[in-house]
Simulated assay, not measured.
Amino acid sequence: MVRLTVPRVLMAVLGALLLAYAFAVAPATLPGSRDDARSDRLARAEPNSVATAEAEAVAATESSPPPAEPSPSPPPGPQLFPPAGKAFIGVMTHKGPYDFAAVDAFAKAAKRQPQVMLFGAGWASDRFDRKLFDRISGRGMLPMLGWEPWDYGVDAAAREKGTPRRQIDKIRSNQARYQLSRITRGDFDGYLWSWAKGIKSLGYPVAVRFAHEMNGDWYPWCEMSNGNRPGDYVKAWRHVHDVFRAVGVSNVIWVWSPNANWSGQTTKLATLYPGDGYVDWVGVTGYYGTGAFAKYRSFDAIFNETIEEIRTFTKKPLVITETGASDSSGRKAEWIKQTFQMLPAHKDIIGLVWFEVDKERDWRIANSPAAATAFAKAVAAPRYDFTWSPDLLPRTELDD
């Protein structure tokens, strides 16, 4: 048994006091206590979080590019002629831009202002005349020049004598001066240059239908007549085109225009095609009421075979460059109505030129109330409702 003494009691009391101090006082003040840790965290983290946010904001301002100003809207693309999904109506008259009476009569009968006017010029006697083009464009129509390397006086003289038609064809086509080889070798270059410079000076588009119906035998530029040989037509076309290019002409729409095939003996069109680099529009001429098409044949029956052949070698926009209907069988109005019902199915046809002339047959609509009514009703469709202006860009490629 432990004996209690005064020293031992004093030591026990002192030990108890020390133990109480260790548990009650020291934890609140010793380094590493909970309160010290919290205070230390506040002292280090809270001020630094503000500084960090400010620094990050400054860094973001300095490293980020300034806000971009809104970019202007791109300018609208060029307006095309004809617009997408549309087709123009053209007209050709006997006196052309020398007298617009027939054009006015046609427009009145059709209740539609044509957007294109075709007129002819022969190399033997016609010189460039700006007034003719300006008269047409001033009336809101694209001028289309039928440019013909021949002397049309020979044809006129034969008609006045009452010469039979096929005999006229032989007389007309036999003009040695205008053989294709002479065009290619440059015999007419001075004449070509004068027209090229004149057309360039116009400053607005002009369609040039050069040496049309070349697949026949009734013009001196046909390969089947006038001593011409296979391949001569393409060479002549390219030469004429190259002269215009050398002059710097950029406002010509080159229109290549054969006749609708009428027999299995017709020259293959691919051999007469100058190539897409030399042609902007392809065309076809065809009439109901004459020649091989004297009996009633619909638009498709007359044109489809030729169009299908053309589509084997080019996809250029297509124009019916001359057409008309005779009333000799009393079906002119019917043909017009049926034609305009068929046209919308031909998405590649961008225009049709009506031959408003009394020549061999009376093709005019202005002198036939029934034909005029049928034509006016047909072209009242929105497909033909637009205008031509000199600032429009000619459509030279088809939409996909």
Rank of each mutant, 00 (worst) to 15 (best):
M1P: 10
L4C: 11
T5E: 02
R8K: 07
V9C: 04
M11C: 07
V13D: 05
A16R: 06
L19T: 02
A20W: 12
A26F: 15
T29W: 09
T29S: 10
L30K: 09
P31D: 09
P31I: 01
G32W: 01
S33E: 11
R38N: 08
R38V: 09
S39V: 10
R41P: 00
N48H: 12
N48F: 09
S49E: 15
V50S: 12
V50G: 13
A51L: 11
E62W: 02
S63E: 11
P66D: 14
P70H: 13
L80P: 00
F81C: 03
P83L: 14
F88K: 03
F88V: 02
I89D: 01
G90A: 08
G90P: 05
G90S: 02
G90D: 09
V91E: 08
M92P: 01
T93E: 00
A101V: 14
A102D: 03
D104Y: 06
A105M: 06
F106H: 09
R112S: 08
Q115L: 04
M117Y: 03
M117A: 07
L118Y: 14
G120D: 14
G120L: 11
G122C: 09
G122D: 05
W123K: 01
L132D: 06
S137R: 10
S137I: 10
R139I: 07
G146H: 01
W147S: 08
A158S: 13
T163Y: 01
T163P: 06
R165D: 15
Q167I: 10
D169Q: 07
R172A: 08
Q175T: 04
L180F: 14
R182Q: 15
W195F: 07
I199E: 04
S201P: 08
F210D: 03
F210T: 14
E213M: 07
E213N: 13
E213I: 03
M214Y: 07
W218V: 15
E223M: 01
M224F: 06
S225W: 04
P230Y: 13
D232I: 06
Y233N: 02
K235H: 10
A236P: 11
H239D: 04
R245V: 08
R245T: 15
W254L: 00
S257K: 10
A260N: 05
A260S: 09
A260C: 06
T267N: 05
K268H: 07
L269Y: 01
L269E: 02
A270P: 12
T271F: 10
T271D: 11
T271E: 08
G275V: 10
V282L: 07
G283C: 04
G286L: 09
G291V: 02
S298G: 12
D300L: 01
I302D: 00
T306L: 08
E308S: 09
E309F: 00
F313M: 15
K315Y: 13
V319F: 02
I320K: 12
E322G: 04
E322Y: 08
G324V: 03
G324W: 00
S326L: 01
D327Y: 12
S328N: 11
G330M: 08
R331W: 12
R331Y: 15
I336Q: 04
Q341A: 06
A345C: 03
A345M: 10
A345P: 03
D348F: 01
I350C: 12
G351A: 12
L352W: 05
V357Q: 12
V357H: 11
K359Y: 15
D362C: 06
R364T: 06
A370E: 15
A371C: 04
A372K: 14
T373N: 12
T373I: 04
F375S: 00
R383T: 07
D385M: 13
P394I: 00
E397R: 13
L398F: 05
